[in-house]
Design a protein around this nucleic acid. Structure first.
Lengths: 232, 232
DNA sequence: CAAAAAGGTTAATGAAAGATTAATAGGATT
DNA sequence: AATCCTATTAATCTTTCATTAACCTTTTTG
């Protein structure tokens, strides 16, 4: 489920304003429609918008000027221009004022939506820095993906590159079968007889390394693959 | 003083490619021009780009497909499309693949530059937020980022520029692996065989400099990278 | 139950990667 | 122009580790 973004649309033309706000509403945006710059500023003061969409031609104020007023009210609020004036000088001016985009009318609604989504997803994902599991715990062992270390009760156990890769794959799928094919294609890139032989060697090495905790075992499922079993 | 951004331009048309790369070069960008998708992928592997500019029509591969390949090589690298095909379906497809923009030919160079600047200023300010400590303490050593000094129990140890850069990177990530790629692209800007050889020399120098505290060590993780380990 | 196939373990090997020291070259400074 | 400083390249030596091989044990199959 995605976050619902809140937009302010500043557009004096009634039919275009209505059309766009309806369309954006349908596309899961929360849209506030302002018909004048005055109105836009008031609403910006009292709402937490994620993006402002500004028409350049407004009855009471130039859109560029409005963008600066809005910046004064909420400097974090990104804005883009929507305009019939596609003069090159205007495009340059728009960006120089800090716009995140500049779209020429006639607007294609679908394109507008994908551009808005592209903008907002970039703006917000960089903030939300997702954390991907950097450690796997298996019995008394801890496999650290940041520094490629395996530790047993704090004691470092040296692993080679391939040993690590294999153990990481098994740990990621602990108590679940990893087929030969899956293992060989992800770690060796190639699924053939010789690499399968090599895999056996590495399984053997890992078993030695994991021997300090009897609850752990790498079990073979005949003709299918291997599984890291963690008991209890 | 602004950072010089590094771009890769993928464009098979010689005259347009030449024109754009010259123009962007004039505008203080470092531009690498690839004429084929193949070339683009190779260069992406060995360079730390800030943005990729992709033509949609390439001799050896579809630009959309190329964007996904590039994403596989460097998921952080933002890309935009440049195209003569302004079919609406293509615009939508471009954004759905993760593009940050989609520009229709004929390209106005000035507009391209302001769009690139708008994009990069937004993208990089959010990333580079990492708090920069002004000092890193490692065992008996103190690395001072303000005056570029390394001291051991007060005694100054002279470091060259590159030695300092490398140690700073390792210190920032102490007890965490720094991959070859990460090191080479941040300090050398380019990830190739010769720079990797150079890296070895610097690691060797740093080891000497850090030899006064046995709790510190720069460990190599075979085929992956280096890590500054600080014990207990 | 016997033969064949698959899996397990240990050791040998050779190519690739890493470490170290020295030589070289280019820029800056005096 | 001479000297110093530094990054890169070269040369050489050492270590690492994936693969291969050899041989043994277990499982499957007919």
């Amino acid at each position: 489920m995605n976050k619902k973004y809140k937009l302010i649309l500043v557009e004096d033309d009634s039919s275009l304003g209505y059309l766009l706000s309806e369309y954006l509403g349908m596309k899961n945006f929360e849209v506030v429609w302002a018909k004048t710059a005055e109105e836009a500023m008031l609403k910006t003061k009292s709402n937490a918008f994620d993006l402002a969409i500004l028409d350049v031609m407004l009855p009471d104020m130039d859109g560029f000027e409005l963008s600066q007023k809005i910046k004064g009210i909420n400097p974090e609020l990104p804005f883009l221009f929507l305009t019939a004036r596609s003069l090159k000088i205007d495009v340059l001016k728009g960006f120089s004022m800090g716009a995140v985009d500049y779209l020429k009318k006639p607007i294609d609604e679908e394109e507008l939506v994908v551009r808005i989504n592209a903008l907002l997803s970039r703006l917000t994902t960089s903030e939300e820095e997702e954390e991907l599991a950097s450690e796997y715990e298996m019995g008394d062992y801890i496999l650290n993906m940041d520094n490629f270390e395996l530790r047993h009760k704090g004691e470092l156990i040296k692993l080679t590159g391939k040993e690590f890769d294999l153990l990481a794959l098994l740990a990621k799928n602990q108590n679940q079968l990893c087929t030969h094919k899956e293992i060989l294609t992800t770690i060796w890139d190639k699924n053939d007889y010789f690499n399968k032989k090599s895999l056996n060697v590495f399984v053997s090495h890992l078993r030695k390394h994991l021997g300090k905790d009897s609850r752990l075992s790498i079990v073979n499922v005949n003709r299918r693959g291997f599984m890291l079993r963690v008991e209890e």
